[in-house]
Nucleic acid binder design. Structure first.
Length: 887
RNA sequence: GGGCGGUUAGCUCAGAUGGUAGAGCAUCUCGUUUACACCGAGAAUGUCGGCGGUUCGAUCCCGUCACCGCCCA
């Protein structure tokens, strides 16, 4: 016998271990089933499970479990990402506590420390994924710094370099002065900051008392100015173009140039140009062949390129000093408050400095072209579709991708430098030696490039590197391209776009057919969860409290397309209740000896209630399956919930009770078998959403041959039955109507009353006799008389009765002295009024000639039909009122 | 400034080639009839953001405005 409540904590680890140890998660390369592949977005190896992970991995697991059940060889490829900067920062922070820097340790020792740390806490997130019930093929787990994946990185780097798509260049990059590394555009966060606009007067050389005023938000960069630009058509400055200004403090002469970059409507119309410290100015500098004057070191402190007094200053100290000097020189025109966007490093949180350095770049524009076409042509499809706009927008304006990072944890750039700076890009040092020898004609000392690659460079290869590429493995042939990538919108640029580019370039095909983009999980007020707000909900806490299945079901039910997931704990509690409800339904079945019958054929059942639930089951299996296939998780969860609670528990099991208590042994046996069968189907249908409780019930309700997770998804065709549906709908309508009136007329729940049915259509007499027991019990009747004598009706009415209308029939419930006749009259009158309102609405439509002429005929017919029904019901209610007046 | 999404019951959300607006939670009333009080029965609740337009008919389509959220400048 099942316990009274389901206890997830005792059940979950048991089944997970059993699944994992039995190899149930494994894909089978030799299988003749159709493959279905999901590449798991690798979480940071440093990370721990948060609600975003819980959502994305639940959705993926629902898909993979469903596909596994519906006959696919399902591969969910797991793994983790080395997360270069983030991980390095964690370890450096640990070192800091010991007052050691990575430079004290040296590169090799430091790397050892990171690997140690990875070994010790790198498994956290994968352990937590198990608690979520995730079922990836753990045996295939990969790490972006595995030997194999590293080989893929080297191969890609070398290949793209030979193809001219990776190159080394001295460019302005986003320099993080705290982490001492370049970062990509995407790792820069633009924040709105309240700052100032300083207006500086630059004296024009050769003209007494003539100044040109420039406005800037960064006064300190004037130390690196190479020019002043004005708009070519700005007449205020036409006379000055071609002259020079004498840069204050520095005492250098710089030209006044005409360039359209200068916006005459902004500031003073003249803008200072610092090509080495601003991306726009760099462009201007290139156009006018201006010198690049780098004034900062790697800490963003002023270097030896600035006047003696200004050297070695932090950029903000330099700013103060420059402003003070201008003021003293009388060249400070004014200072205005000014709100503008300032770039911050997303990891370090410090202001990013555009800085001129040698870096490696990917020619992203070239790689983006086919990746754009793949989405345009529908080879890869975004779900929901509108996300393709975001993708297109970014891909069509893509900039060269700076891939080198001045850190140690990551894939070291496979480039070696000779003594004269010539470099050799090769997959191995040996090959570099060979190349160098060919170049120099002799052996020379080579030094490997110290930089490592952006983490996203290796994750861009994930869809094929994890399958063994560059080796041509059977896995690669079988599981590439993947079927769907499931991820959040925040990662479209970082990862999705880059996988598309690399996948197409190296595999000749897109990495996945669908890209399902889900929303962010927010708190119940719709706010982003963050540590600082203190509104973080830990998924593991919810699992502890309500069970994993409740959390998974909640996340699925809330994952409506195009909506953020606003998570309130009450929802989880509600779905925990749903799990308990299912548990108790199974318990009821068990108590009533509903055991699965071998060879049970749902098509063969005779009892109407059984035919009905069988049809509903088939409908639900179909609905839930196609909802999952269409990424409609909310519809899948909702459909299952409604069926299990609203149909199976609320009605079917109640219908079964009179049969179990009755004398018809054949009906009893059939109903037991049917109930057991339906419960089994429910377990299948719910399994992708609630793997643990379903597996537990599967194992406890019968002796089973293998686990539920490997069972086939129910394909139930030919079970639909409209006649049965109509019949049971009528039964439900009868019972609900009586219950409602009982409640409204305050008939005590314990009181059993008679029910006289007048005017029942003859074809429903059969229904009435079939379901008499059932209606009697569920409506709590003492008698259910469908052919009452006229005198009986008259007598009942005159002594006081509640009356109601179901379809063509009038239901009379004699209540004798119990009834408040005025109240009943008021109730009936209100009903009549309501029907009058409905009839009036229909009449208005039908009397509109345009409606009758232009609306579709079936719509018009429907209105006529509706009117007839309402009018008939109204007539019956009026008769009831008259009978009541006789009382 | 450009783009995307949202605005439906107190809350969280569904919804239909345009044709009687739904669910869960919360609320209220009643209830221990041998699965379940993490339960059962019943009830109440909406100018479907505003304004225009198209249409016989708009919550749904179009335009516009407002507000909220996000992305990009």
């Amino acid at each position: 016998m099942l316990d009274k409540t389901y206890r997830p904590a005792e059940v979950e680890p048991k089944h997970y271990e059993q699944w994992e140890n039995s190899g149930a998660f494994a894909a089978h390369t030799g299988s003749n089933k159709q493959p279905y592949t999901i590449m798991m977005p690798p979480p940071n190896v440093t990370g721990s499970l948060h609600m975003g992970h819980a959502l994305t991995f639940t959705l993926q697991d629902v898909l993979i479990r469903y596909r596994r059940m519906s006959g696919h060889d399902a591969l969910w490829q797991p793994g983790t990402d080395h997360a270069g900067i983030a991980t390095q920062m964690v370890v450096e922070r640990q070192l800091e506590a010991q007052k050691v820097t990575r430079h004290d340790l040296g590169r090799d020792k430091f790397m050892e420390r990171v690997w140690e740390w990875k070994a010790e806490s790198g498994g956290t997130i994968t352990r937590q994924l198990r608690r979520l019930g995730a079922s990836p093929d753990w045996a295939k787990e990969r790490f972006t710094m595995d030997e194999g994946l590293s080989a893929a990185v080297r191969k890609v780097f070398v290949t793209l370099n030979r193809q001219g798509l990776i190159y080394r260049a001295k460019r302005l990059v986003n320099w993080d002065p705290k982490l001492h590394t370049a970062i990509s555009d995407l790792e820069v966060e633009q924040r709105e900051v309240k700052g100032h606009m300083w207006h500086f007067k630059y004296p024009v050389e050769g003209l007494e008392n003539t100044y040109i005023t420039v406005a800037t938000t960064r006064p300190e960069t004037m130390l690196g100015d190479s020019a002043v630009a004005v708009h070519p058509e700005d007449e205020r400055f036409t006379a000055l173009v071609g002259r020079q200004v004498r840069l204050p403090i520095c005492d250098r002469l710089i030209p006044i140039v005409a360039d359209e970059y200068s916006d005459p409507t902004k500031g003073t119309g003249a803008v200072k140009i610092t090509p080495a410290h601003d991306f726009n100015d760099f462009q201007v500098g290139t156009r006018h062949d201006l010198p690049l004057l780098n004034i900062f070191d790697r800490d963003a402190r002023t270097n030896e390129a600035v006047p003696q007094d200004y050297r070695g200053l932090d950029r903000y100290d330099a700013r103060k000093k420059v402003v003070a000097a201008f003021e003293e020189l009388g060249l400070l025109d004014k200072i205005e408050p000014h709100t503008h966007m300032v770039p911050y490093g997303d990891r370090s949180g410090v202001v990013i400095e555009p800085w001129l350095t040698d870096q490696w770049f990917v020619d992203a524009a070239t790689l983006a072209k086919p990746a754009i076409e793949a989405v345009e042509s529908g080879k890869t499809r975004f779900v929901p579709k509108h996300w393709e706009n975001t993708y297109f927008e970014w891909m069509r304006n893509i900039q060269p991708w700076c891939i080198s990072r001045q850190i140690w944890w990551g894939h070291q750039v496979p480039a070696w430098y000779g003594p004269d700076g010539a470099f050799f890009v090769e997959e191995t040092e040996d090959e570099a030696w060979v190349a160098a020898k060919a170049h120099y004609g002799k052996d020379v000392d080579l030094v490997r490039d110290a930089d490592v690659l952006d983490t996203w460079f290796s994750s861009a290869l994930w869809p094929f590197s994890t399958l063994g590429w560059p080796e041509q493995t059977p896995e690669l042939a079988r599981y590439y391209p993947g079927d769907v990538l499931v991820t959040g919108f925040d990662i479209i640029f970082f990862w999705v776009a880059r996988m598309m580019m690399m996948g197409i370039h190296f595999m000749g095909d897109v990495p996945f057919k669908d890209i399902y983009i889900h929303a962010l999980v927010r708190d119940e007020k719709g706010q982003k969860m963050s540590k600082s707000k203190g509104n973080i909900i830990d998924p593991l806490d919810l699992i502890d409290k309500y069970g994993c299945d409740a959390l998974r079901f909640t996340l699925s039910a809330l994952a409506a397309q195009g909506r953020d997931v606003k998570l309130a704990e009450g929802r989880v509690e509600g779905y925990r209740n749903f799990a308990t409800k299912l548990w108790n339904a199974a318990r009821f079945c068990q108590m009533n000896e509903c055991h699965p019958v071998v060879g049970f054929d749902p098509k063969s059942v005779k009892e109407t209630v059984n035919r009905w639930i069988v049809a509903k089951t088939a409908e639900t299996a179909d609905k839930v399956g196609s909802a999952i296939e269409n990424y409609r998780y909310d519809a899948a969860a909702g459909g299952a919930y409604q069926f299990v609670w609203g149909a199976f528990c609320d009605w079917y099991l109640e219908f079964a009770k009179p049969i179990f208590n009755g004398a018809d042994e054949a009906a009893k046996a059939e109903t037991r078998a049917t109930a057991a069968w339906v419960l089994d189907q429910i377990l299948h249908i719910l399994h992708p959403l609630m793997p643990f409780i379903t597996e537990e019930l599967w194992s406890q309700t019968a002796t089973r041959d293998g686990s539920l997770m490997l069972r086939p998804w129910p394909v139930l065709t030919g079970l639909q039955d409209a006649a049965t549906e109509a019949e049971m709908d009528w039964v439900v309508r009868m019972i609900s109507t009586v219950r409602a009136v009982r409640s409204e007329m305050n008939v005590p729940p314990g009181a059993q009353v008679d029910l006289l049915v007048s005017g029942l259509a003859t074809e429903k007499n059969g229904w009435a006799s079939t379901h008499a027991d059932l209606i009697t019990r569920l409506a709590r009747l003492s008698a259910f008389d469908v052919k009452p004598a006229a005198e009986r009706i008259a007598q009942a009415s005159s002594h006081g009765a509640a009356q109601m209308v179901v379809d063509e029939a009038t239901l009379i419930m004699p209540l004798g002295g119990v009834i408040d006749v005025d109240k009943e009259r008021a109730r009936l009158t209100k009903e009549v009024d309501r029907l009058d309102g409905e009839i009036a609405k229909v009449d208005k439509k039908l009397s509109n000639a345009d409606f009758v002429a232009k609306a579709r005929p079936e719509v018009v017919a429907e209105q006529h039909e509706r009117r007839l029904e309402w009018a008939a019901a109204k007539d019956k209610l009026k008769e009831a009122l008259e009978r009541l007046s006789g009382a």
